[in-house]
Write a protein that binds this DNA or RNA. Structure first.
Length: 719
DNA sequence: CGTAGCAGGTTTTTT
DNA sequence: ACCTGCTACG
């Protein structure tokens, strides 16, 4: 294998296959290349069977890519190698043996919405007011318990005040509901795998023996449970290689513990530590910006990335008056860079919060530029998709009451809350599920009509369950939509909304078709499909089309683009006002900024607005401290007027508010060029209000954006 | 049981 | 500004 193109540190990381290895890999230092070559090296040079290799990545997409890249490097068989995310790996392990923990092997996986509904139900059953006790907080507490591997019993024992006791009680109730439903949340996947290993030492031993070489990517973002899992698996051979960058740790809110990577050298014996400090991705100016920003973090191991790539262009800065204008000017800049030869797919717009995407999207749509958005209101969270998947979940696991309650009256079958309550109570008395309770519908005091409807539903579901074993997922989807009357319901509604729902269901079938192409019909099919769906990450949906990518900075982790736009660089938005209380949280925000900057290879654009509307209220916004941490000589401001010339020309005047007549009877329009006594030349970009309080927004080429009282503005029209 | 209309909270990030 | 959940009425 040819390692001559690698630097010394990379080569060392690739060839040190025995014993614990810690690779501290700076942004863009080629860590994915190191990991793929290391795996290829094991297979080819060390003759390690692929069966003995495990590699854990952060997203399914990264896993898929890594496997493809290994396959390209060598001829050896890679089919038995496990490259997957923590969660997908645990699903695979639990699928085999979770019955030993009392769960059904056809367990369901809950998404956040389902989890929230369970907490709400628990609160209801405990007679607690949701307003006084926000369900979200309990969900957080539960997640924290699980990430820290604290059982319900331990939580109760260690609860000292009222709130802790309540958290523990709700945790325990919540867990019982999930157990009854054979349902697992994301955190359970990890925690229960560890519990399984602790309970059944022969199962642990099996995997310890199997996984002789273990790799973990993005190790800085592992939580305690994931840390423990890796630790357990690696105890037999201790051939463990973890890769990460403490400066890119951005998932603390989700339980990630930066100490996992910082303590690695203490946790394992004879650790070989390798530093990758040469950056192959970004031009010098971009790297300088990143280094200058991250240096402001006090609690970090100092390091400085160097690049062998050229100096590059200056960073472009854009200051707009509001988020609408920000969107327009980003679009303008995108078009400019497109003309310079960049593809749309070379460019990504990054923001702190999903809510910021709207203004950017609007601007892109208006200019008919292609874009694809990662995350946000996810496709899989739409009602019709969730309904369909709930049907599939019930077909697979009839005891999944969470899914059952979702579909029992969709389409309407006259089964209301009262009936569901009766069924639920009966299910509890049977110590079973609603599905079983429905079988007794005739004897538990329901109306004849109700019992009949329920019997019909049961028959439909039972038929579907039989059929499901002999058909593709796509066919099963068709059967479900038809047999349950779901499509008929939408067709009958015949509204804009219902039609779009039908389209979405059709769209869903492109996903199922893709799945069907790579999977065999059989008993495992539905389970595999549903767990795949539950574990897709946002990044997995990045298309390959020539389109601008829109996403949160979190979602951009591990990716790179020639051109990066970081928008909304305002105090309170980024850094988020929720993270400004403690130095620790602020430093995590700064790492986020560091991640954002280092995604860029060639061009970086930073953008902010001086006012921003949140909850329908417009507030003025100060420049983000991270912006000022970038040395000014690296930045070049966009000439505002030249940007405006193109941007406003196309805009059609809307209504009378667009026109303003001054005291001397001259009327002004948006887009008019004007001369101001003191500010010089500029252009009117907005006219707000009316009468004496009417204000003009004017962007001046020298003085920048200003808001002036229309009545008194000493301006003249220019042509 | 079902729907329409209103009140209140909500935006930080996600496998 | 938007979404969810509650209430009152048909």
């Amino acid at each position: 294998m040819d390692l001559s193109l690698m630097n010394k540190a990379q080569r060392e990381a690739i060839t040190t296959t025995e014993g614990p290895v810690l690779v501290m890999a700076g942004a863009g230092s080629g860590k994915t290349r190191v990991l793929t070559h290391r795996i290829a090296y094991l297979l080819q040079e060390k003759d390690v069977p692929s069966y003995n290799i495990l590699a854990i990545t952060f997203t399914n997409k990264a896993a898929k890519e890594m496997k493809e890249r290994v396959d390209k490097l060598i001829e050896e068989d890679t089919s038995q190698m496990w490259i997957s995310t923590f969660h997908a790996m645990c699903v695979r392990i639990l699928r085999r043996d979770i019955d030993k923990l009392g769960y059904d092997r056809s367990f369901s996986i809950l998404d956040t919405t389902d989890q929230l509904n369970v907490v709400k139900d628990v609160l209801k059953s405990m007679n607690l007011d949701q307003k006084q006790y926000p369900p979200r907080q309990f969900l957080n507490a539960i997640s924290n318990f699980k990430n820290a591997l604290i059982t319900e019993k331990e939580a109760k024992e260690n609860a000292y005040d009222f709130r802790e006791k309540l958290n523990a009680d709700i945790y325990s109730e919540y867990q019982e509901v999930l157990y009854r439903n054979s349902a697992l949340d994301f955190d359970d996947l990890i925690m229960l795998t560890i519990q399984l290993f602790e309970k059944e030492s022969d199962i642990l031993n099996y995997y310890q023996t199997k996984f002789q070489y273990i790799h973990v990517d993005e190790y800085q973002d592992t939580n305690h449970a994931q840390y423990k899992l890796v630790y357990m698996l690696s105890q037999k051979y201790e051939n463990i290689c973890v890769v990460g960058d403490s400066d890119q740790s951005i998932y603390k809110f989700r339980g990630a513990d930066i100490m996992n990577i910082l303590n690695f050298e203490e946790d394992y014996d004879n650790v070989k530590t390798i530093l990758l400090e040469e950056n192959y991705r970004s031009h010098q100016r971009i790297l300088d910006a990143a280094n200058n920003v991250i240096e402001n973090n006090m609690s970090r191991v100092p390091k400085n990335l160097v690049t062998s790539r050229g100096k590059g262009e200056k960073i472009i800065s854009i200051v707009s008056q509001n988020e609408r204008e920000e969107g327009q000017r980003i679009v303008k800049q995108i078009q400019k860079l497109k003309n310079e030869g960049y593809n749309f797919s070379d460019m990504a717009v990054l923001y702190r919060a999903n809510s910021q995407s709207r203004a950017i999207e609007d601007a892109l749509v208006k200019s008919s530029l292609p874009y694809n958005m990662v995350g946000g209101m996810k496709f899989y969270q739409r009602k019709e998709i969730k309904d369909l998947m709930s049907y599939m979940k019930v077909v697979l696991n009839v005891h999944d009451d969470i899914a059952m309650e979702r579909i029992i009256n969709t389409p309407k079958r006259g089964i209301g809350p009262k009936t569901i309550d009766t069924l639920r109570n009966h299910a509890r008395s049977l110590d079973s599920s609603i599905y079983d309770a429905i079988k007794d519908a005739d004897f538990i005091g329901l109306s004849k009509k109700n019992a009949e409807n329920l019997a019909n539903l049961l028959e439909v579901l039972e038929n579907l369950k039989e059929k499901s074993k002999f058909m593709t997922i796509t066919d099963l989807v068709d059967e479900i939509l038809h047999d349950t009357g779901y499509v008929d319901m939408l067709i009958r509604e015949n509204t804009l909304e219902s039609n779009s729902r039908i389209e979405n269901l059709e769209e869903f079938k492109t996903v199922t078709k893709e799945f069907d192409e790579t999977h065999e019909i059989g008993d495992e099919l539905l389970f595999d499909f549903l767990s795949d769906m539950a574990l897709v990450s946002d990044q997995d949906n990045v298309d390959d089309l020539d389109a601008v990518t829109l996403m949160t900075i979190h979602a951009s982790k591990g990716l790179e683009f020639k051109v990066i736009f970081i928008v909304g660089l305002e105090e309170g938005l980024f850094p988020s006002f929720r993270s400004m209380d403690t130095e620790e949280e602020l430093e995590e925000e700064r790492r986020l900024m560091y991640v954002a900057i280092t995604r860029a290879m060639e061009r970086l654009v930073i953008s902010r607005a001086t006012t921003r509307t949140i909850f329908g209220k417009t507030n003025s916004a100060m420049e983000s401290q991270f912006w000022s941490e970038i040395p000014a000589d690296l930045i070049e401001g966009e000439d505002l007027i030249s940007v405006y010339n193109g941007a406003t020309k196309k805009r059609k005047p809307r209504a009378k508010s667009q026109v303003f007549t001054n005291n001397s009877g001259v009327s002004f329009n948006i887009g008019d060029k004007v001369t101001h006594q003191t500010f010089g030349d500029g252009m009117i970009t907005a006219i707000n209000g009316s009468g004496d309080s009417e204000e003009l927004d004017i962007v001046f080429s020298k003085a920048g954006p200003k808001r002036l009282l229309a009545k008194f503005a000493p301006i003249e029209k220019k042509d």
